[in-house]
């Protein structure tokens, strides 16, 4: 298996996980890089993207595993050829072999940008900091078996709040991303549930970096 590190930004954030898989399959094809196929009733090109992301979320640290048919192609060349065949917003940052085992991926740094159209409330940072320091904080989680309550505190690592300008507050958080996973947008849900007066006009979410269980950068 070979691994891609790529970013998904701009208008590409609106492409869903399944559509992104198809987009990559076609980009490989256009780049003249034939993917191996699954051996099933319906052979499919084998690409897999770690940690499927919700529509609308940006990332600069996405991973995709694949394998090529035929003669080996140098990693740098794969990167360049793919970048020439991809749409704006999807960009390959690195291509490498021997990536770490995906099951060791544990933590994710993300950045929520809270936009307040009529200005960031004066005590927002303080109140939000206090909220996420509670011993327990439950929010609704929609799953396959309906709605349940999820305590987000055990899945939350370090957290930092920063006022960027009059209208924007950023919340940098480390969240557990596998077994179990915390969707970073649940932090927003917590704000809306417990501090509705601090609910922002709009919130953007960006994945920034991946880590293993020991806090080492994951590749």
């Amino acid at each position: 298996m070979i691994r891609l590190l790529f970013e998904k930004t701009g208008n590409a954030v609106w492409i869903s996980h399944l559509d992104l898989m198809r987009l990559f399959q076609r980009a490989f094809q256009r780049a003249g890089l034939p993917l191996t196929h699954t051996h099933g009733f319906n052979p499919r090109p084998s690409v897999s993207i770690a940690l499927p992301m919700s529509v609308g979320v940006e990332s600069i640290c996405e991973l995709l595993d694949f394998a090529l048919d035929g003669e080996p192609v140098p990693c740098g060349e794969i990167r360049d050829r793919l970048n020439d065949a991809l749409v704006p917003g999807v960009r390959i940052l690195d291509v490498y072999e021997d990536g770490s085992k995906l099951k060791n991926l544990a933590w994710l740094d993300c950045c929520l940008t809270l936009e307040y159209d009529s200005g960031v409330p004066s005590d927002a940072a303080e109140k939000l900091g206090a909220l996420f320091s509670r011993p327990s904080l439950t929010v609704e989680k929609k799953g396959k078996s309906g709605i349940s309550e999820q305590d987000i505190i055990p899945l939350l690592g370090r957290l930092e709040l920063r006022q960027e300008d009059q209208n924007t507050l950023t919340l940098l958080a480390r969240v557990h991303c596998q077994n179990p996973a915390l969707n970073p947008m649940q932090l927003l849900s917590a704000v809306e549930r417990y501090l509705p007066e601090l609910a922002p006009s709009f919130c953007r979410c960006r994945r920034v970096e991946l880590y293993d269980e020991n806090g080492n950068v994951f590749r």
Partner: peptide, 24 residues
């Protein structure tokens, strides 16, 4: 700040239909 159109996109089904930016 995110513009009005971008703010609508997360609220609708299949937002990629409205953004353009496809190959070709």
């Amino acid at each position: 700040m995110t513009d009005r159109k971008q703010r609508l996109l997360p609220t609708v089904q299949k937002p990629a239909r409205y953004t353009g930016g496809e190959w070709g």
